[in-house]
């Protein structure tokens, strides 16, 4: 599903990732951990086509995205969902409109959009706030809407970067549960976090990064 071969990424004078090789299978639940600046975000960005590696190859569903054309990046992203710490929801638009956006972009019909958005909102328990504008929602609610938006077009891969960074332990628990259930339905999950609570709760494969190097890679044992 996702394969990295000797991937290296530098930023001006700074080595964000060096010689990282990985293989992630379909349906896996991968937790990326490590101290701040370890390269977790960089790794996710590379898979998402937001950055190009300096060296090495990245295969996502057998497509080499180390050499992807910029015009193909949007289509790569449509097969993935992305959840961030700072939500990135459109303000002054309703919950429904926000979740519908990935479908509008793909040109889905009105009725199809409605059905899928409602399903996604139901899955995250936000269907009762469909017509609320997103800026008035609480942090936990906003993150649920983000997750609904990320899964609304049934992505094969869900990437999450510190999805619980702004949430209290109770909400962190709930959001982790949500990710777990999404993963249980077959979506490959890659979640970057330094929250031990999330790592312990998710019981997934733990990949530890430090200073851009792969420190350890432990399969889940249940």
């Amino acid at each position: 599903m996702i394969q990295l071969f000797h991937v290296t990424k530098h930023y001006k004078g700074c080595r964000a990732l060096s010689d990282v090789s990985l293989r992630i299978e379909k349906g896996e639940c991968v937790l990326l951990t490590g101290p701040s600046g370890a390269g977790k975000t960089t790794l996710l960005k590379l898979i998402f086509g937001a950055e190009i590696p300096d060296d090495g190859q990245i295969l996502v569903q057998n497509r080499n995205i180390a050499r992807i054309r910029p015009s193909d990046v949007p289509f790569l992203r449509r097969t993935m969902g992305f959840v961030l710490q700072d939500f990135k929801l459109l303000p002054r638009k309703t919950v429904f409109e926000n979740v519908a956006l990935p479908l509008i972009i793909r040109g889905l019909s009105s009725s199809g959009t409605k059905k899928k958005v409602n399903e996604a909102l139901q899955a995250v328990g936000m269907e009762h706030k469909r017509t609320t504008e997103t800026q008035v929602l609480s942090a936990g609610e906003q993150q649920r809407v983000c997750i609904a938006r990320a899964v609304v077009n049934s992505p094969i891969i869900l990437l999450a970067d510190e999805p619980t960074g702004n949430l209290d332990p109770q909400l962190t628990y709930e959001i982790s549960e949500l990710f777990k259930s999404i993963n249980a339905r077959g979506t490959t999950l890659m979640l970057a976090t330094h929250n031990k609570q999330v790592v312990d709760h998710m019981k997934g494969r733990v990949i530890r990064l430090d200073c851009g190097r792969l420190l350890s890679d432990q399969r889940a044992y249940q």
């Binding site: 949007p74 449509r78 990135k88 972009i105």
Partner: peptide, 16 residues
């Protein structure tokens, strides 16, 4: 620009 960033994130093409 925030909005545009978001649109890019969810796979909108440059034309869109």
């Amino acid at each position: 620009r925030e909005e545009i960033e978001i649109l890019r994130l969810i796979g909108a093409t440059g034309t869109f």
